[in-house]
Nucleic acid binder design. Structure first.
Length: 570
DNA sequence: GCCGTTTTCGGCCCGACTGTTTTCAGTCG
């Protein structure tokens, strides 16, 4: 049984215990689940060494449950819990405004066990008579059900980030606004976003909130108070605005950036100093006085820690690493010198090579690698061999007239089901850079899939493994690869692993980056641009690398062209 | 159920908003 499956069971146990109104255990299970999920080693291996109990958050009882799951694949305690909770109650508790308590009351009093039966009961006016409910809650339940039905759930960071930035900028322009910034998961640059958090300070919070709720993008106002408001956009995305006093902005920004687990860990730490940390600041519990803070760095410094970048705040060991001074200096957004994965009209791109050069120069890049697709059964706009010669002639011609900028001739090859590439070696040798990528048969069995990728990596001409797992966010699971074997091979063969910045790929994923970096491999961040506007995907790729704890020297496209050429042997 | 340079027992992050109440529970983030 894999770590992820065990973590999921612990998460569900936490939910079930919460429904049963058991105190504190849900926190313990959730904490254990979170830590298990972010381990870089298999629980089975840790168990073999008898070191389960040394995992933070895992004590005698949870360790025993991990052992039971590893050996039998089942957990009696989990099965018993499930049998004690009426089916459907968990589903009810997922509705906005319904928690464990109300879900249980609805089930007990009305026999409601699904969204459908709840909708019927609400429509029939049966809910308003229950103790603790009223007409308003009945109406809100119907609204929540409608919202749930139409909700797309999480959205891609790349889709929502520009929208959020626009709203932020609109509010920033108001006279009532002092400081303003994005917070929450969007500031941490998580690959998908549930809702958007915006934090502001203002001497006139009500005025700011009134402006916010009447923005043209807003389709429904969920709540509106003197310090916070929630709205839903026409796209179905929820946006929360909090307004605080100016001197509370930094602690509030830290607080609302999260993650929740990161904050809980920080607050624990604050309590060790007899301080209470909240969005309103530090409070000395002995004197009752507030401690001044004038930046986010101040908060970390007071807790004896260096500043922790928002992208790292996931409670994946960043606090411990910060404490030990082993936190990596993650790759800066402005350190990228070029883009190594760019398509053009030569294959399935929308813009020409000169267009892409001009756009790249605007971004301050020193080079780009044109990596159009090779012709494959899967890619019908890919390049035939005779066109490759012509493309190289164009690139040579363009390079002669460029000063301080280099166009590298590259190709994105498809890895065939047999683990070969779709171009012969005598052609591959003429490229500066060769990316090998999976585009088809992503559901192959794990052993076969891994062999296929490893075989391709053994081709001497391959420089980069493109979007290594082939996942499509919210759509397609990653291929069942033995990633440790791939990382090992990348290290020994000198193959660079791509962090693909295309909004629905972000592949390698942040957590895979964290694992890969332990092997000492190198990465390239590529936009996979199919048009000039896509070059901005680089930001998403860098964000993913940062979330994966990758430093600048591990990313080859932060190198100047001479050093890059040495790495890719061109 | 976990954890301990103030604890092996007694804590476990903390505040806003809503809708139900007539002082507060539940939910959310």
């Amino acid at each position: 049984m894999k770590n992820k499956e065990i973590a999921d069971i612990f998460y569900e146990i936490a939910d079930l215990l919460e429904i049963k109104d058991v105190k504190f255990k849900p926190i313990a299970y959730r904490r254990a689940a979170h830590i298990v999920e972010s381990l870089t080693e298999d629980l089975a291996d840790i168990e073999k060494r008898g070191e389960l109990e040394e995992i933070p958050g895992v004590g005698t009882h949870i360790a025993a449950k991990i052992r039971e799951l590893l050996t039998t694949g089942k957990l009696a305690y989990f099965d018993r819990l499930k049998s004690e909770i009426p089916p459907g109650v968990l589903e009810l508790a997922e509705l906005e405004g319904i928690g464990p308590k109300k879900a249980m009351i609805l089930n007990r009093e009305l026999g409601v066990a699904s969204m459908e039966t709840l909708e019927k009961a609400a429509s029939a006016g049966k809910i308003r008579d229950l103790a603790g409910f009223g007409e308003k809650s009945e109406k809100n339940i119907l609204l929540s059900i409608a919202a749930k039905k139409s909700a797309k759930g999480r959205v891609l960071l790349g889709d929502i980030l520009p929208v959020a930035e626009k709203i932020r900028d609109e509010l920033a322009a108001l006279p009532a606004t002092r400081q303003i910034g994005l917070a929450g998961s969007i500031r941490r640059m998580k690959e998908t976003i549930g809702d958007v958090d915006i934090l502001a300070s203002s001497p006139e919070p009500e005025r700011l909130i009134a402006a916010f709720t009447s923005l043209p993008e807003v389709s429904r106002v969920l709540g509106k108070g003197p310090t916070r408001s929630s709205v839903v956009l026409a796209s179905g995305v929820q946006v929360d605005l909090r307004v605080v006093e100016e001197d509370q902005y930094w602690t509030a920004l830290q607080y609302f950036t999260g993650s929740k687990d990161h904050n809980i860990a920080l607050r624990r730490r604050a309590l060790e100093h007899d301080w209470s940390l909240s969005e309103y600041g530090f409070k000395d519990l002995n004197t009752g006085k507030n401690l001044a803070v004038s930046s986010e760095s101040d908060i970390y410094r007071m807790l004896g820690l260096p500043f922790i970048e928002p992208e790292l705040r996931e409670n994946r060991g960043e606090i411990e690493a910060a404490e030990k001074g082993t936190l990596p200096a993650v790759v800066p957004y402005d350190s990228v010198r070029g883009d190594l994965h760019v398509h053009t009209t030569w294959s399935d791109g929308d813009d020409t090579i000169p267009d892409m050069i001009a756009a790249a120069q605007k971004l301050g890049y020193r080079y780009i690698a044109i990596c159009d697709h090779a012709r494959s059964p899967e890619i019908d706009r890919g390049l035939m061999e005779e066109k490759i010669v012509k493309q190289h002639q164009e690139i040579d011609r363009l390079n002669k007239n460029l000063d301080g900028f280099t166009v590298l001739s590259g190709i994105e090859c498809n890895i065939t089901t047999e683990g070969t590439l779709d171009l012969p070696d005598q052609i591959l040798k003429d490229f500066d850079i060769v990316i090998a990528s999976l585009h088809s048969k992503l559901k192959m069995h794990g052993d076969e899939q891994t062999k296929r990728v490893l075989d391709a990596m053994h081709n001497d001409h391959v420089d980069i493994l493109g979007h290594p797992t082939g996942r499509i966010l919210l759509q397609r699971e990653p291929a069942a690869l033995d990633l440790p074997a791939v990382f090992e091979a990348a290290k020994s063969l000198g193959i660079v692993l791509e962090i693909n910045g295309y909004p629905n790929r972000l592949d390698l994923a942040d957590t895979d980056c964290m694992k890969a970096r332990e092997y000492g491999v190198r990465f390239s961040i590529g936009s996979d641009a199919h048009a000039t506007r896509d070059l901005y995907n680089m930001t998403l790729g860098v964000a993913t690398a940062r979330r994966g704890w990758i430093d600048e020297r591990s990313v080859v496209n932060t190198f100047e062209i001479e050093e890059l050429r040495k790495v890719i042997g061109s």
